[in-house]
Amino acid sequence: MNISVKRIQAIFMKDYKEFSRNYVISSVVLMPLVLALFYGRVGSNSIDMYFLPLNITLSMVTTYVQACLIAEEKERNTLRGLMMSPASTFDILFGKSLLVFLMTGIILAVSCYLVGFAPKQIIVIALALALSTAFYLALGTICGLFTKSIMEASLAVLPVMIIFTFGPLALALGEDHLLYKIVEVLPSTQLIRLAELSQANAAFTELIGAFSIITAWTAGAIAISVVLFNKRTKDL
């Protein structure tokens, strides 16, 4: 596999220009910020409440925008042009993800500030959020590859949002409920757990459990998206 910085940069710049001129999709970015402002004003102070806007950002912005970017390429028949170019799968997926990754990072940081969440171990939280972002990016890629148009992609993102963003809310059902056990292994739940432990100044060894679960989800999702993408390349 040959990695070319020039090609990644070309894809990144192209997506940046397209995205910034597409107001329908780029305005979505503002939504989580408004929510974060709202939650911040309401005066929530539990980690659960802090992380609700963050998790919404991950599904609404990261997954949705990534899915739309890929679905739009398919809708307009430009994905084939990319696949036929000397750019490798890594070049294409990385170039496309880079834009959304950076954007997510900025929004997450601003959201944290607006909602009033001050992480005590900033590196741990940043690492966990970066891993989660990669997971949601891969999910977005999968959604985009499965659908044919932006319309379909926005629908396909809905289940992702319901399961991963609002899943942690099911924890309120109590430990005996069946849903509790399922929801507990979700990366979004683990992200909240990790943040709770981290805010309580836990040692790194205590965090390994949550980290490994998030990493496993991320690795799995990335693997599936790469396999799907390669399959698409072949049956052109």
Binding site: I11, K14, T78, P86
Partner: peptide, 23 residues
Amino acid sequence: HEEGHYERLTVEETFQFYLKLHN
């Protein structure tokens, strides 16, 4: 004929993109 375009890029940007993509 079914080849599509990046509609929101300008003509110049389209040229730049494909030239860079193909080295």
